[in-house]
């Protein structure tokens, strides 16, 4: 059992545990914090897979920006906990069963259709260095220029949309 594998197992145990914590916490604030931890472990996975740029983005965008926004809203709305409701009984049981089936399917897939996903080669050492980042930049601004520009428009639209949705009408509701 190599050191890589040990590291991977520990990290994945943390990731699954934090995900389950997010899922099972009664309090939404705890859920959000669990999720931040989960995102951080995933960022480490990215580093292990030789994607430092994505790892940094993960930390800044997800763990930083998005989750802070979540916490803001939770606290703003005071929606940490909800009163239990009797609607949709059996939903939880059904979801559990389906989840188990889905995991079973995936395991089956990985065990018996293994040929599709072979062992990955150790990534080039260069990938974690500056030239790799340069390559990402070049790719973004050459072959992916159009999607990149459209993304910027998308962000602008989302920004405008969010502002419009939350804006207070001066004269109240009509």
């Amino acid at each position: 059992m190599s050191i890589d594998l040990i590291l991977f197992l520990i990290l994945s145990a943390v990731a699954v545990a934090t995900a389950l914590g997010m899922l099972l916490s009664k309090n939404a604030v705890y859920s959000a914090l669990f999720l931040v931890l989960n995102f951080a472990t995933i960022a480490v996975f990215y580093l292990l897979l030789g994607a430092p740029f994505i790892a940094i983005s993960q930390v800044t965008v997800y763990a930083g920006a998005i989750m802070v926004l979540f916490l803001f809203v939770i606290m703003l709305l005071g929606a940490e906990t909800l009163a239990p409701s009797k609607v949709l009984r059996g939903q939880g049981l059904a979801a559990f069963i389906l989840a188990v089936v889905l995991v079973a399917e995936t395991v089956y897939l990985l065990l018996f259709r293994h040929a599709a996903v072979g062992a990955i080669a150790r990534p080039d050492a260069a990938l974690n260095e500056l030239p790799a980042l340069q390559k990402i930049g070049e790719a973004l601004f050459t072959s992916y220029l159009l999607p990149f520009e459209i993304t910027s428009i998308l962000l602008l639209v989302a920004m405008v949309g969010a502002i419009v949705l939350t804006k207070q009408e001066k004269g109240g509701q009509k």
């Binding site: 890589d4 991977f8 699954v16 995900a19 559990f96 889905l102 995936t106 990985l110 080669a121």
Partner: peptide, 26 residues
């Protein structure tokens, strides 16, 4: 280096937990 299938399995487990969260939380 860790076998790729472990990552996929982890990805699947996380995905399933997320999906279960969508289904069970109100």
């Amino acid at each position: 280096m860790v076998d790729i299938s472990y990552y996929i399995l982890l990805s699947a487990v996380l995905f399933t937990i997320g999906a279960a969260g969508v289904l069970v939380r109100r």
